[in-house]
Lab assay of single mutants.
Amino acid sequence: EQLARLKREFNENRYLTERRRQQLSSELGLNEAQIKIWFQNERA
């Protein structure tokens, strides 16, 4: 579920704002660094 949600977010926007990253962190139970790194890896 977390992965599917991250992929949906990535398809909508390849870059997250700090606020959006905080929201996802709270909703998915991941820390902000994990989300940031995931997005960086997807863009690579």
Rank of each mutant, 00 (worst) to 15 (best):
W38A: 03
G29R: 02
A33W: 14
R21N: 10
I35M: 03
R21M: 15
Q23S: 07
R20D: 08
L24P: 03
L3S: 04
F10T: 01
A44R: 11
Y15M: 08
N31E: 13
E32K: 04
R21T: 15
E18D: 14
Q22W: 05
L24G: 01
L24I: 06
W38H: 04
E12P: 00
W38G: 02
R14G: 11
E27H: 05
Q22N: 09
Q2K: 08
E32S: 09
W38L: 04
N31T: 15
E9H: 05
A4D: 11
F10N: 01
G29Y: 01
A4N: 09
Y15Q: 08
N41F: 07
E9F: 06
E9P: 01
E32Y: 04
F10Y: 08
E27M: 08
L3K: 07
Q22F: 06
E27D: 09
I37N: 12
Y15W: 12
R20T: 09
T17Y: 02
N13A: 01
L16C: 06
E32L: 07
W38S: 03
Q22A: 13
E12W: 06
R8P: 02
K7C: 14
I35G: 00
N41D: 09
R5K: 07
A44C: 14
E9N: 02
E1I: 07
S26A: 14
L24Q: 00
T17C: 11
R21E: 08
E32Q: 06
R19L: 14
N41G: 03
R43H: 10
L30V: 06
L30F: 02
E12A: 07
Q22V: 13
Q2G: 05
N31R: 06
E42L: 09
R43E: 11
R20Y: 08
N13K: 05
E1H: 07
E1M: 05
L24N: 01
Q34Y: 15
R19I: 14
R8T: 10
I37Y: 07
R8G: 06
W38P: 02
F10V: 03
T17Q: 04
E42K: 03
A44G: 06
E9D: 02
N41I: 09
S26R: 15
F10I: 03
Q22Y: 08
N11R: 11
R20I: 12
S25D: 00
A4T: 05
G29A: 04
E42S: 04
K7S: 05
Q2A: 12
A4S: 07
A4Y: 00
E1Q: 08
F39M: 07
E18K: 15
W38D: 03
R20H: 08
S26V: 15
R19D: 15
I35W: 00
I37T: 09
R14M: 10
E42I: 05
N41K: 11
Y15D: 10
R20G: 06
E27G: 01
T17E: 06
R8C: 12
S26F: 13
K7G: 06
R20F: 07
L3R: 04
Q22G: 05
R19Q: 15
E12F: 05
S25G: 07
R21F: 12
N13L: 06
Q23I: 13
E18W: 03
E18H: 12
A44N: 12
Q23R: 10
E27Y: 03
K36M: 15
A44Q: 13
R20L: 12
E1W: 12
L16S: 01
Q34P: 00
R14A: 12
L6S: 04
E42N: 05
S25R: 03
G29S: 04
E42P: 00
N11I: 11
A4Q: 10
A33C: 15
E1V: 06
Q40N: 08
A44V: 10
Q23G: 04
R14K: 13
A33L: 13
R20Q: 13
N41Y: 08
R21I: 15
L24A: 02
L6W: 00
L16Y: 01
L30Q: 01
Q2F: 07
E12V: 05
F39P: 03
L28M: 06
L28K: 00
Q34R: 04
L24K: 01
S26I: 15
W38R: 03
E1N: 08
I35C: 06
E27L: 08
Q34H: 09
R19M: 13
E32A: 08
L30D: 00
A4M: 09
L28C: 05
A33N: 13
R43A: 13
E9V: 06
Y15T: 11
I35V: 08
L28A: 01
I37H: 11
E12C: 13
R43K: 09
I35E: 01
N41V: 07
R5I: 09
E18N: 12
E12R: 09
Q23T: 09
A44H: 08
E9I: 06
